[in-house]
Write a protein that binds this DNA or RNA. Structure first.
Lengths: 210, 210
DNA sequence: GTCTATACTCGGATAGAC
DNA sequence: GTCTATCCGAGTATAGAC
């Protein structure tokens, strides 16, 4: 839910090993086909076996490239997120002004509001990452949160220097808070669309002013 | 808690003739035994069938009282939450002063920090509730969020009247924000214990002062 | 390394016995 | 209403064929 502005980074494929070779290409091919299936049917009701059948491989073969269904969904999420970031980077480039930390979260959240499936997938994967037995998902989201927070810190620092927000606040704590608020509000909004997601976030912007 | 009497899912919906009581009692008996199994083994690796076997019923029988594994986990969560609230109510009664909205979230979060399994269960169930196909879990958490927000609103109003916090802020938006921040920060903390959960929440307290 | 075959347990739905 | 028996498709682990 907080696919907020991150510093663009090289795509390091999530699952298997380092050798960039034929296997990676095959993996990518399978992933592309799988993405298509998910796009048509949605991830929710689509089983590993269905996907495998649909793209013409055995489910065992699919599992050879993605160690688990969760890994496949993680790759799906990562792909979508990357795509969004590229779009955002473009849009941002078009504008002359850099958005503030809160503003950036708002614009990200505004997009999410139109694709609840994405937020839901995010929520599922994060919940899975909290479990002890999913170390890879855990690492993925730990690093993702770090990146998102760090991006927020950069913006906050700039805003402090320009006098846009209070200079006496700890930017690290503040960054964690803003990311948390954005995530949590999106969850509440999905359960109750009366929640004023943007309004609540704007309130934070208000509170930060000197 | 909800004004409604206990169990959100009644095994005897419309059947008019007599004895709800027996089925309800049996259900409660099974739940108690199941809670014990979860306490020993933890919910994570414990399958429906394991639980059923452990307490001496067929898994079919278990599913007769809890329509799904998720329902069983929901009952587990509800039971634990109720127990905690009772404890908190006592502790609160012992103190002379009512805590503020943020303070209340902090003390709740402080407890959670010592039982990560509980937070993880919460996270899993919330993620499940976001899916279309789980209307009961969805309703449960929709109502829960409403109650939690409403409780925060009450505290915020009192704090506004006493001049403890700014009076010009919309308490509804603020309540949603505080709940969101608390949830989101706990998630981040579970993935990275360097996160200063309490510090970030205290910052909110700070921002709200007139 | 890539993939097939197989088997296991899982959550869940069904039908029918009491 | 309570429960057993049974079946299905799911995710996943393993062995071994190529």
């Amino acid at each position: 839910m907080a696919p907020s502005p991150e510093t663009p980074q090289d795509p390091a494929p999530i699952g298997r090993s380092g050798s960039y070779s034929k296997g990676v290409a095959r993996r990518k091919e399978i992933l592309d086909r799988a993405l298509e299936v998910f796009r048509e049917r949605g991830p929710e009701g689509t089983s590993l076996r269905r996907v495998a059948e649909e793209i013409g491989v055995s489910h065992g073969a699919l599992l050879h490239y993605f160690r688990s269904r969760e890994q496949l969904l993680l790759a799906l999420y990562e792909h979508t997120e990357t795509h969004r970031q590229e779009q955002r980077a473009e849009a941002e480039h078009a504008e002359s002004e850099d958005p503030g930390a809160v503003e950036a979260m708002i614009s990200a959240a505004r997009v999410n509001v139109h694709s609840p499936g994405y937020v839901q997938l995010y929520s599922t994967l994060v919940a899975g990452a909290l479990e002890e037995r999913n170390p890879e998902a855990r690492q993925f989201f730990t690093e993702r949160f770090e990146r998102v927070r760090e991006a927020a810190v950069q913006r906050l620092r700039r805003q402090q220097e320009s006098g846009e927000i209070r200079a006496d606040l700890d930017v690290d704590k503040l960054a964690a808070l803003i990311v948390a608020a954005s995530d949590g509000l999106q969850t509440q909004w999905l359960l109750d669309s009366d929640i004023d997601l943007e309004g609540s976030l704007r309130m934070v912007e208000d509170l930060l002013r000197p």
